[in-house]
């Protein structure tokens, strides 16, 4: 088992390395570089940029060098814990990202917790009381939730909040808290804003989770071990929760690693509508501006988190499912 974990660890490191190459290549793919898009946006606002100025910029950011040199330089910087300058912002990448990464994690975790807290009980209910009125209602609401795009829901929530509750929904903080340093009051302020955001972000995934949980559980409920558990005289609730639900949860644990980047990339538009200070909109902007260091750093961080998340969910799965534990020995 230890050997298996070490193998996974090596694989994870290799994957992260591959992610650095890929993210670098993808960011370089569009024609031109940061300077081209800088010149374009400058001339759009009526300011000309001379060839000499452009060349100076390129040399300043090392854009004149061959691509592999740029890559190696970038890697060298990252190895030293430096992520370079966000060119467009004129500030170090880490400054620009700042709290955004933490806040993104907080929002994503909140959305996932909301999704699971709602989807798992409803999915269990739907499977156990299959074809009941409750099951049909859950299915209907689930499909409506799935059909409404997140940004639309965000707009509706904002409109309703504004019109009927005179509350401005959006952002993660009240106006007076946004730039305040972290303290207890700011934390409470964040907690107040979090539920609406979590619901808007989580609702689409909830509908999907309900379907997955329902069908997983239906498969398990048919298995003989459920009937033998009943035959031992356990109460129905205990039978269901201890055996088939436990087994039906395994696939959820195994997708834990993918959830985070899924929520981040799926939430860019919603984040823009709700003006959330997350990395999603930042990434979009950096990609448009071909801001190599900023975009590269964000993609790399998301990649690392996915790999780490997958690694953790593998370990969790081994811990809760003995079949996997034995297979990997």
């Amino acid at each position: 088992m230890i050997a298996y974990i070490i193998r996974r660890l090596i694989l994870a490191i290799l994957t992260i390395w591959a992610i650095t190459v890929l993210s670098f290549v993808i960011i370089q793919l569009p024609p031109g570089d940061y300077v081209t898009s800088y010149i374009a946006s400058m001339s759009a606002s009526g300011i000309g940029v001379t060839e000499a100025e452009a060349q100076a910029l390129r040399i300043q950011y090392g854009l004149d060098q061959p691509i592999y040199v740029q890559y190696l330089k970038w890697m060298g910087m990252i190895a030293q814990g430096r992520f370079g300058m966000a060119i467009e912002w004129g500030r170090p990448v880490m400054d620009v990202i700042g709290d955004r990464l933490t806040l993104t994690i907080v929002i994503s975790v909140a959305a996932i917790v909301f999704t699971w807290a709602l989807a798992l009980p409803i999915g269990i209910y739907s499977a156990v009381r299959r074809y009941s009125i409750g099951d049909y209602i859950a299915t209907l609401i689930g499909f409506i939730g799935l059909a409404i795009p997140g940004f639309m829901l965000a707009l509706i929530v904002m409109y309703v909040g504004f019109k009927y509750f005179n509350a401005s929904i959006g952002g993660l903080f009240s106006a007076e808290m946004a730039d305040a340093p972290w303290n207890w009051a700011k934390f409470v302020d964040l907690l107040k804003h979090l539920p609406v955001v979590a619901i808007v972000l989580g609702i689409g995934g909830t509908a999907q989770m309900i379907r997955i949980m329902r069908s997983n559980l239906l498969d398990e409920l048919r298995k003989p071990y459920v009937m033998t558990a009943r035959a031992r005289g356990l109460s129905e609730a205990r039978v269901i929760m201890k055996y088939p639900v436990r087994v039906a949860l395994n696939p959820f644990i195994s997708t834990l690693g993918y959830l985070f980047p899924y929520v981040v990339s799926g939430s860019i538009i919603v984040s823009m509508v709700l003006s959330l200070p997350t990395v999603g909109p930042l990434l979009l902007k950096a990609l448009i501006a071909q801001d190599l260091f900023l975009a590269g750093t964000i993609v790399l961080m998301l990649g690392v988190m996915t790999v780490v998340g997958t690694f953790i969910s593998d370990l969790l799965l081994m811990w809760i499912d003995p079949r996997i534990r034995f297979e990997k020995q």
Binding site: P224, M227, A229, Y243
Partner: peptide, 24 residues
């Protein structure tokens, strides 16, 4: 009824593999 199931009547199934929980 549950007490009868446990203490008065016991049940053995055809498939001993699937009759046990795979994770307990």
């Amino acid at each position: 009824m549950r007490d009868i199931r446990g203490t008065e009547i016991g049940l053995v199934f055809q498939e001993p593999m699937t009759s046990f929980s795979p994770v307990h």
